[in-house]
Amino acid sequence: MVLPVNRDGFLLPSAPNFRDLGGHRTESGRTVRPGLLFRSDALHSISAEDLSTFNGLGIRQLLDLRTSHERENLPDIVPEGAEYAVVSVQDPEKAGANFSRTLTDPEAAQAMFGNGGATRFMDEVYRDLVNDTEALDGYRDLVERAAKGPTSLVFHCSAGKDRTGWGAALLLTLLGVERRAVIGDYMESNTRQANTEKWMRLLSDHSGLEWEDVVPMTRVRAEYLNIAFEQVDAAYGSFDAYVTEGLRVSGTTLEALRERMLV
């Protein structure tokens, strides 16, 4: 069962998947503090109309989860007073980091994404977000930066749904938010993909694929996130073991994260 969420609307219409992780209740009855943890899609597109709001959120860290190719092509707009940091969570040689290039080659696109390939591709992306050394190092960095500060912080990728989605699921789970609410937060990305859909439709036009073949990469599905959690259990036996043995996050860091982020 997925627990629906009712969040705070579109804080930044020009970055529709920008939202606050605050307000979620934990299983112990505490609440994630609002205004400290933000998740987002790409931040190169902040409009002039949204800039004052963006600068007024008090963001002190902007963590960019994108690949070097994405960062160079579409550099972020960084809020006033914020530190910009690259936090890599994807092996740049993996297909998941280069799918947009594949879509420019019709033959390669058909081979990889046709006939249900896009769904299989997404399944593999989520396994890699748990397994890859780059992902383990990057998500540890995300947790440590959230715990240490300075806060507030925003972390993002391009669509704000997969790399960012697993990062948000990780942080909320560490803070004690129940799984149904974690999945509910994750699924909300589907209502916030206007920018991504425009971009993906352009890529689809050049790929020779039918739009239906591409759709699995433009949306989140609960089964995608569940694949990541299942991979955690398969590789480590439990979420706690994934955190301590895979991510190598210390107990001191977890205590600091919860002290900073919960009321």
Rank of each mutant, 00 (worst) to 15 (best):
V5A: 10
V5M: 10
G9E: 06
G9A: 12
F10T: 10
L11G: 05
S14N: 05
A15D: 00
A15C: 13
N17S: 00
F18A: 00
R19A: 00
L21D: 01
G22N: 05
R25K: 15
R25S: 14
R30T: 12
V32G: 05
L37E: 01
S40L: 08
A48F: 01
E49Q: 13
E49T: 12
S52M: 00
T53P: 04
F54I: 08
N55W: 02
L57F: 03
I59N: 00
I59M: 05
Q61D: 05
D64I: 11
D64A: 10
L65D: 06
T67C: 09
H69R: 15
H69Q: 14
E70F: 08
R71V: 14
R71Q: 14
N73S: 14
L74G: 03
P75E: 08
P79K: 08
G81I: 06
G81S: 04
Y84W: 13
V86I: 12
V89G: 07
D91G: 09
D91P: 09
P92T: 12
P92I: 11
E93C: 12
E93R: 13
K94E: 15
G96D: 12
P106I: 07
E107Q: 14
F113I: 05
G114M: 07
G117H: 10
A118I: 08
D123T: 15
R127L: 12
D132F: 05
D132M: 01
T133E: 15
L142D: 03
E144L: 02
E144F: 00
A146F: 02
P150C: 06
V154Y: 05
F155S: 06
H156K: 02
C157I: 03
C157M: 01
S158D: 04
A159M: 04
G160K: 08
G160T: 03
D162K: 06
T164Y: 07
G165W: 06
W166R: 01
W166A: 02
G167E: 11
L172S: 03
T173I: 03
V177R: 00
E178F: 10
I183F: 09
G184M: 10
D185H: 06
Y186I: 04
E188Y: 09
R192L: 15
E197W: 14
K198H: 12
K198A: 13
K198T: 15
L202T: 13
D205A: 14
H206F: 12
S207Y: 02
G208K: 02
G208C: 02
L209S: 09
L209E: 08
E210Y: 10
W211E: 11
W211Y: 11
W211P: 08
E212L: 05
V214Y: 00
V215S: 06
P216N: 04
T218L: 08
T218P: 01
R221L: 04
E223C: 07
E223T: 14
Y224H: 12
A228S: 15
D233H: 09
A234K: 14
F239T: 01
F239R: 00
D240Y: 04
D240L: 04
Y242P: 03
V243D: 10
R248P: 00
R248Q: 15
V249H: 08
L254R: 11
E255N: 09
R258N: 11
R260A: 11
M261I: 03
V263W: 02
